[in-house]
Simulated scan of single mutants.
Amino acid sequence: MIRIALLSNPRSTGNRALLPRVRSFCAHHPEIFHYEVERVDQIDAALRTIARVEPRVLVINGGDGTVQATLTELYHGGQFEGTPPPVAVLPNGKTNLIALDLGATGDPIEALQRVLDLARGDDLSDHIVTRELIALTHEIDGVSDGLKPVLGMFLGGAGLTEVLLYCRHKIYPLGLPNWLSHAITGFALMASVIFGIRAAFLPNKPAPVTVSLIRQGDIKGSFSVLIVTTLKKLLVGSRMGGGTAHTGALQLMAIDQNPIALIRALVAGLFGKLGSGIMHGVHIRRGDEIRIEGDRSSVILDGEIFQAALGSSIVLRPTNPLPFLRLAA
């Protein structure tokens, strides 16, 4: 019996060293159906093949782009009859935000063993959670461009986009461990935002944007941090809780391009107070539709860059929930 279908992308950075171990693990565990793709346009066909073996769990082994593309195809493709199997994500990408939210940390092979142990059990219900996804589309003068929405769980914009691009293009190529790369990026963020230092080796200054929420008005300005997510463990210390029909499934946090506001948010997060009350310069909202507009309104959704040209909008809406497998107890 096939317990797990494992979808791997050999071209992801993490798999260059990991994939031989993954292949060896799968060779010793016939309950795992291992399917490898080298391009995102192969994922739909991969999922249709995987659906035929009827796995109890679908595991994604790849970078952030692979996870995003798989979730997009899974949601739109209809490869599985009825509800698809719960999805688990190995901690293999550079940021691993989705894996972290689902309790998959540390060594990817150990996480895969944990998934297999759960899949061998009689009842997965205690470990299945649902998550809405963010559906990203473009609109020009209020009219959709007609393209299929791209789905993900974490979106960064404004100054956070500049920081993520800085980390990707200037720090990751140095070949440093992830933790050190992220630490250097954090120091660069502090230097540019808190101390106002401007230099070619630091992240670019964010451009002004307008963020609109239905029935909650607009938030305008330059932001050091702009986050929209459906993840539960990202906004550390926030008390926003789960979304409802009245509050909305999309969590938004925007922090003004102001050192005092950023420090307030960091301190509030450390003490578990973020989102518990009004804080000048820190905007925390929930909604079911969020629009981002600006001259350079670039955003990064689960590691992939999207940009709206002047006069167009990036529109975010929640999807219906998908099942995921949570590894943490």
Rank of each mutant, 00 (worst) to 15 (best):
T72H: 03
L58E: 01
L234H: 08
I2T: 15
L213H: 02
Q257Y: 15
T130E: 14
A268F: 03
S12P: 10
P86C: 06
I171N: 09
R296L: 15
F33A: 14
F324H: 06
H76W: 13
E304R: 12
I290S: 11
D107V: 07
T66F: 10
L100C: 08
G159D: 06
G14C: 04
F154E: 00
R120Q: 14
I227Q: 07
T247R: 13
G142V: 04
G106R: 10
V115I: 13
G277V: 00
L47R: 11
A158E: 02
V40W: 14
G82K: 11
T66I: 08
G311L: 10
N178P: 07
I98D: 01
I2K: 11
H127P: 00
A254Y: 02
A199R: 12
E81T: 13
N15L: 12
D123N: 15
L301G: 12
G272S: 06
P149M: 05
A200Q: 03
M153C: 14
H76F: 09
L18K: 01
G78Y: 13
V228C: 09
N96D: 10
L133H: 01
D44T: 11
R23N: 06
L202Y: 03
L47T: 14
G159I: 04
R198K: 13
V225S: 00
L164Q: 01
K170C: 04
T13L: 12
I314N: 12
I98A: 06
T130N: 10
L90P: 05
I300Y: 02
Y166I: 00
S224K: 00
L164N: 04
E110T: 13
P86F: 06
F33K: 06
